[in-house]
Write a protein that binds this DNA or RNA. Structure first.
Lengths: 259, 259
DNA sequence: CGAGTTGTTGACTTGGGTCAATCAAGGTGG
DNA sequence: CCACCTTGATTGACCCAAGTCAACAACTCG
C-alpha cells in the first residue's frame, strides 16, 4: 500500500513500465543467443577480466556472479552482484589492483563480442531499448547499494539483502517465502561491508526473533514478509525495482507486501 | 564551434582536435549541442526528476551536479556526483521516496529528449561509442565509490575525495595543487557517508598535518601530492580512471604521482 | 576418521556518531 | 551603516555499533 502510493507520486513511468512488462514476459536479450558463446560455470569459477581489442560482453542467464575486489590490508569488497539478465562489461570494472569476477552459484553465461553486440543493438530498436533499460536498472541498483552502505546499519543492510534474495529467488509456500542463499557468509559480509562475525551475530538475532529460519545449509525461510520488510528502509525501493517481473516474483512481492 | 563540428559528422575527431587544444581526444558528445536545450543553473538549483513519456537525458557540460536522497530518520546520502561530460537519466535513479538532483556549483547542462539522443547515437557510430564509454566510466566510478564506502575509514575516504577534486578541478602552481571545493561540508559528508562533525574533525587533522591548506572559503591547496596520495588506497585507481584526459589534469596527475 | 573450511559466540576495543556549545559568514531590512 | 537572524563549520564530552581476537562447533571431503 505504501509502495503503491509512493509509485504514483514519484515514479509514474515505472508503474506503467511494470504493467507493460507483465505482457512482454520474454526478454529481447534472448534474441542474442545465436550469436553468443554459451558458458556454464560451476560455483567459484573465475572469469578472466583482461579487456582485449574487442571487449566481451557478458550476459547472465541463470545463477549469480559476483565482482570482488581486494584492497591492501585484507580488505575485500563485493562490488556488484550480477543476477540473471544482467549485463557486464570489463569496462565497468574500476582500475583496482585485485578484481575478480566469479560465479557465486552454478550459472549460465553468454559471451558476445562487444562489436557484435553493438551492431545487433543498433540494428534492432527493441533490443537497443532493452539494453538501455537494463543498463539503467543496474545503475539504479548500484545507487541503491550506495544508499545502503552509506546509511543503513548492519541489521538494516542484512534485511535489505534478504529482501533482495526473496524477490530474486524466493518461492512462496503456505508457511512463508523460502529461498536459496547462494553465497557464503563471507561473501555476503563482503557485499554488505560487514565483518563475517558481525553478520553471523545479526543472522542469529534475526533467527531467534523468528524473522528468518534456517532450512538446511544454504536455504532459508521467511515466515512473515511484512516483519522482514519492516526492518529495511529500502524495502519499498527494492520491491518496486525488482518485484513483479515474473509470475514467481509477483507472488513474493505480494507476500512481502501483505500486512 | 560545436555547430561547425556537427556539420562534419564524418570526421568529428579531426574537426574539433584542430580547434580545441593539443588534446588528440575530442568530445563527441559536443555534437549534440544543436539538438540540446542549454540550461544554466545556479548553485543549489533543483532539477525535476519526473520522468515523462519521453525521458530527458541530461549532460553536464560544466560545474557539478549531485543526486541526493533522504531516507526516513534524517539520513541523507549523496548517491552520485555528476561532473562535466557525465550523462544522467531519470531511470538511473532508484525508486526511493525523496530523491533530488541539484547543482552543487554553477553549472551548464544540456537537456535532450531520450528519443532524439538515441536516434543520434544510433546514426553516428562515433557518438554511440562515446556514449557507451561514458556510461561504462560512470559505472566504474560507482563501483569505486562502493569500494570506498565499504572498505575505507573516514580519513581514507576524505583523502580519496580530495584526490578526486584535485584531478577534476585542480590547477598546479609552484606551491602545490589548488582547487575549488564546490560542495558544502554537509554535502561532502553525505557523499562520503560521514557525519558533518566527523568530517570537520578529519579536515582539521589533515590541516594541522599540512596535507591540505585552507585558501579562503571553498578553496584549498595541497602542497604535496604524494602525501595526500599515500592516505588513500584508491589513489592509483582514481588517477588512472580520471587522470590524463586534459592538459590541465595531466599536470595534476604528474603532481600527484611525483615522489 | 582427521584436516580443512565455514560458521558461531564471547570478551574487549575503538572509530565515528550524537549532542551541545560556540564561532564565523553572509544576507536582509531598518 | 549596524543589529539581527540564519546557515555552516568547528570542537569537546560522551556513547555505542561494529570490528578484532580467540576459542570452538559444525560441515565437507579426501
Amino acid at each position: 500500500m505504501a509502495t503503491d502510493a509512493f509509485r504514483r507520486q514519484s515514479h509514474p513511468r515505472r508503474a506503467s513500465a511494470a504493467q507493460a512488462s507483465i505482457r512482454v514476459e520474454a526478454d529481447p536479450l534472448a534474441l542474442l543467443r545465436p550469436r553468443a558463446t554459451i558458458v556454464r560455470a560451476r560455483r567459484d569459477q573465475q572469469f578472466s577480466l583482461t579487456a582485449d581489442q574487442d571487449e566481451v560482453v557478458t550476459i547472465v542467464r541463470s545463477g549469480l556472479l559476483a565482482l570482488r575486489t581486494a584492497l591492501p590490508g585484507n580488505r575485500r569488497q563485493v562490488l556488484t552482484l550480477l543476477f540473471p539478465r544482467d549485463i557486464f562489461r570489463p569496462s565497468f570494472v574500476p582500475p583496482l589492483p585485485d578484481v575478480s569476477l566469479f560465479a557465486a552459484a552454478a550459472s549460465e553465461i553468454w559471451h558476445i563480442p562487444s562489436s557484435t553486440f553493438m551492431a545487433l543493438a543498433n540494428g534492432d530498436s527493441g533490443l537497443g531499448r532493452a539494453l538501455h533499460r537494463q543498463i539503467a536498472e543496474q545503475q539504479s541498483r548500484a545507487n541503491l547499494h550506495i544508499a545502503a552502505l552509506g546509511n543503513l546499519n548492519g541489521e538494516e543492510r542484512v534485511a535489505s539483502f534478504l529482501i533482495e534474495l526473496t524477490l530474486r529467488f524466493g518461492s512462496v509456500s503456505s508457511d512463508g517465502i523460502s529461498f536459496q542463499i547462494p553465497l557464503t557468509r563471507i561473501d555476503i559480509a563482503d557485499y554488505l561491508a560487514l565483518n563475517a562475525d558481525t553478520l553471523s551475530r545479526i543472522m542469529s538475532r534475526l533467527k531467534t526473533r523468528g524473522v528468518v529460519l534456517q532450512k538446511g545449509r544454504g536455504r532459508a525461510l521467511v515466515p512473515n514478509g511484512k516483519a522482514l520488510r519492516d526492518l529495511s528502509p529500502l524495502a519499498d525501493a527494492l520491491v518496486s525495482l525488482l518485484g513483479g517481473t515474473s509470475s514467481k516474483r509477483e507472488t513474493s512481492t505480494r507476500m512481502l507486501a501483505k500486512t
